[in-house]
Design a protein around this nucleic acid. Structure first.
Lengths: 199, 199, 199, 199
DNA sequence: GATGAATGAGGCTTCATTCAT
DNA sequence: GATGAATGAAGCCTCATTCAT
């Protein structure tokens, strides 16, 4: 009866590995559907070994969301900065804003797994009892507020357009995930965004 | 000896009751999150009694989706018919089409629980292994196809606009559910639809 | 791959069987030490089958204690009644009281397993966080109060003697359990009780 | 580069600290209920760090019991010596013996935690499979033997009185622990011991 | 001297389901 | 038509322990 070879890795590396696999599994099955057992198996470690890094299923979800938030912020920060700069300088920020919107949708193509996670948890977390409920509520409110603020000098109904952009972006991402990348998101988004922004 | 209070209800009635409660629970917790135990408890019956009507968890989900499909079709059919009629008669169907779009979004307000179910299962069923995967894929494809077909004579990029409308509708529904009906969907939709449809 | 033969018994019978075995196991290992797995195995049923009758480990303990209380009350009730009667009638209740004390200690010999349970849980439940803490506190307070009340007309320091009787009874039971019934409890108790009661 | 704050303590000191905390925790939860994790946490060290001093849970228990034995012996030795001296010198040892008994019970008040440990493990170790079973059996036998031997020239039924004293002492300690020191043990003991010893 | 990483075993409990009644 | 009894599998988590560092 031989014991499984004990692999020993650095904590940071392990955590990253785990988060990576967790994004995949939670993105596929949601918080309710994924299991620690399968996750740890996929990470090549024991059930208990996994809980050494993230003490509970919920904690894992939180960590994954934090990770996601960080990654998305990182990718968007420069462009957001450029928008804010334009506003500060009193310039008409439309070009920067459109560039930002394009970048946001590009993420869908660049990191499909991350987007899948967002789309799945977003819907699952509608339940007030869901551990990510508050977090995603805040997230959405912030996004809508930012969009509206940017749109204020550009369009006549900034609040509605902000909601429209946000809604369409998410909806398109979901279409794209469902259809197995069978259509050109970027081009579709080009059309949709143009129409929503044109007065 | 007095007759026991008649708790025995007609099968059809019971099924309807169960489906009703199932919509609520699956809409809140998804397929993975809901449990037969809680569902049957909420229906005032035993675990096994419940499975007497729907033989398995999956079968229940299927039944719920069929029910949902029927209800939504019922609500939309007249308006769809009017659209098709206009097309058949060679008329410009825009007014009928816009009326249909408005009705679709109105459902969000009229039957929140039904919409919650759709939104939640839609996202959860992105997973190819999900029991509703195929069904929702078909559903979405059909919707997009119908929209595109209707839009063909109206706008220059019918496919993209169809996707935009569909995406925005779903996205708005989700916003509305998350924010506890804190904004005016109908008005927002008015703005969004107008912009997506205007050339 | 054959499934274990499904034995089906009446609920009351099962519950009794389970309680019986639970008394044995909890009496040996305490609440912290006994496991549902072993208990259910000893009852010839599955882990989950066991929880069909008692929903949790704690609930089982409570049930066992209730059972124990009932059994002990049943055994002592007539004698207690006789004591109370003597008091009511203004008689000197010493003979009845001594008979009661003897009966109490006799239980130790008659149902060793029950006594083992009491002795073990009594000590374990000193911890305020123990699920039987409140119950055993009440139990002891009631016993002491009853004893003191009975002793009031008989001895000069009824409170202390009550405590002494109660303490000695428990301590002797424990000695008897530890030494494997290697001495004569009844006779020892005769001596101890006489000395505690004699003025 | 500054030297890390010296948390490193002498091994003996650490051991003492651990034993001290172990007395508290085992006294509260028993051998089955206490966990190495909580114990080490309370000692401000890691799980593994703890096992560096005591290689296993059982070994810890043994060490705690040895410690306990040493402490109790230390407190009682002079008085026991005085008793033995009296006997050796052919004197009537009653005064010395009664002083010893008083000292024994005084311990209950002086080191509540130690007594709690004794009371809890005493009951838990009734189980022959308990790691302290043999040890506590020996301990009790020795105590009873000593008491009986001392009592032989003093009372007519030395064996029974020895058991009575031992039983009452333990029982009173338990009452005192359960009721949160709500009564005067010393005074109660005075009464009980007097009665047990008077012919 | 002490720790973090890792594990196998097992803890309680829940789940969907079966089956006899 | 409906239920209570029962189960195997699995779920999350905790435990004592080992081992390399």
């Amino acid at each position: 009866m031989q014991t499984q070879a004990r692999v020993r890795k650095s904590a940071t590396l392990r955590r990253e590995e785990i988060l990576d696999e967790a994004i995949r599994q939670i993105g596929r099955l949601g918080y309710h559907g994924f299991t620690i057992r399968e996750l740890s198996a996929a990470c090549g470690m024991s059930n208990a070994g996994m809980l050494h890094y993230f003490a509970s299923k919920t904690e894992l979800l939180i960590a994954v969301i934090d990770h996601l938030e960080a990654m998305q912020a990182e990718g968007l920060q420069p462009q957001i900065e450029r928008c804010n700069a334009a506003v500060r300088e009193g310039r008409y920020a439309m070009p920067e804003f459109r560039a930002l919107l394009v970048t946001m949708v590009q993420q869908v193509r660049l990191d499909e797994e991350l987007v899948r996670l967002v789309v799945v948890i977003q819907a699952e977390s509608l339940d007030p009892a869901h551990p990510a409920h508050a977090s995603f509520r805040r997230r959405e409110a912030a996004a809508l507020e930012f969009l509206e603020q940017m749109l204020a000098p550009m369009v006549s109904q900034p609040a509605a357009v902000a909601r429209g952009l946000h809604a369409a972006m998410n909806g398109l991402a979901q279409q794209w995930l469902r259809e197995g990348s069978a259509f050109d998101v970027m081009q579709t988004w080009e059309v949709v965004a143009s129409r929503l922004l044109s007065e």
